[in-house]
Design a protein around this nucleic acid. Structure first.
Lengths: 188, 188
DNA sequence: GCCTCGTTTAGTAGTTGGTACTAATTCAGT
DNA sequence: ACTGAATTAGTACCAACTACTAAACGAGGC
């Protein structure tokens, strides 16, 4: 039942809402031991939006994240000549780097290359059979990674694709991918 | 300005809300060319909650999704003997498979193996230098993938790790990873 | 003591996006 | 033309606010 001073109360308010954006003014008023009006004044000066707006913002964020996660593709694919060549651009964001570091986790570079290979094969479903990859240089937060892929050969149901990824002019990743053409309804 | 029949309208209603949960009854009423009351009756029979509840439900997913995405690790890592061996378990969910198919996108299997290799190296930051991987069999939605990793040799700043991933007793993925020990503050 | 200014609280009206309900109207099929 | 289902209209109520005015409180200065 402590009464905080204005500054401390506003600091706590901010903290509480950051920790749990689902708190109503009423709940906040009770836990900070002031009236609802005070909470509203505080929110106003701190420019914290109301509960519904906060929830909406969180939900919008989730939507974006989900749509990114549900994509088959990592990176934006450009200039695909089916069964020939293709290019993909991928910009490294916070979610792609190691915690509190700036170096990109390798599997995103692999995923970009792999996605590009899948997209270049003109069949309903192409699966990666094998890959031989090399990480040439660390890639950092904010880097724009451009992957170039070329089909080297196609024998029967297997295509061999060479991928080279660059940040600016420096080679960061190379990979040889063997892609397998899977027919619809095929038994595995 | 078409008026749909009841069944068709309710089908569309469901579809619209699934595609965009942020639609108000008013907006839905306009696009389906009926009154707000009809939309509310429809929602009631279809057991679709109101806008705020829908948004809230979406927002509540945030913690799970975010924590999954912000993790450095794909899969749960068990039994790690540093610089020796390790095991990781990864269950394939909807987000990991190709759209409307059941086959896992290869880069998640790679990511699992790669994450496990990173976790097994007892330095502040281990980077993948190269990998030689093979996808032996397609992995499906719901499959529980167990990856076993063994350090084969360590020479200087490079460790070689062999990873084998299984679904039940069948080998689905093998990979040889070269991991590079990155010292703190090292220039790249 | 009293005065004052900043802070807090109280109270009112209005908003959004609903629920829950009743009653009236429209439409479709016989 | 009638009937039952479907639709629309209308009302009261709710949560969680915004925006505003006004009153009460409280600590420091003279």
């Amino acid at each position: 039942m402590v009464k905080y001073k204005k500054a401390e109360r506003q600091r706590l308010l901010q903290l509480y809402i950051e920790r749990d954006p689902f708190l109503t003014d009423e709940a906040l008023a009770k836990s900070l031991n002031v009236s609802i009006q005070t909470i509203r004044l505080d929110r106003q000066v701190l420019k914290i939006p109301e509960l519904r707006a906060r929830i909406k913002a969180v939900a919008k964020e989730v939507d974006e994240i989900k749509s990114i996660m549900l994509e088959d593709i990592v990176g934006d694919i450009l200039n695909v000549k089916l069964n020939e060549s293709g290019t993909s651009v991928f910009t490294v964001e916070e979610t792609h780097v190691f915690n509190n570091k700036t170096i990109t986790r390798g599997h995103f570079l692999f995923a970009q290359a792999n996605s590009l290979c899948v997209a270049m094969i003109n069949v309903p479903l192409a699966l990666t059979k094998s890959a031989n990859i090399e990480f040439k240089k660390p890639v950092h937060l904010g880097d724009r990674v451009v992957a170039h892929a070329k089909v080297v050969q196609t024998i029967g149901k297997i295509a061999t694709i060479k991928v080279e990824s660059f940040v600016e002019d420096s080679l960061v990743f190379v990979g040889d991918f063997e892609m397998y053409f899977k027919n619809e309804g095929e038994v595995e």
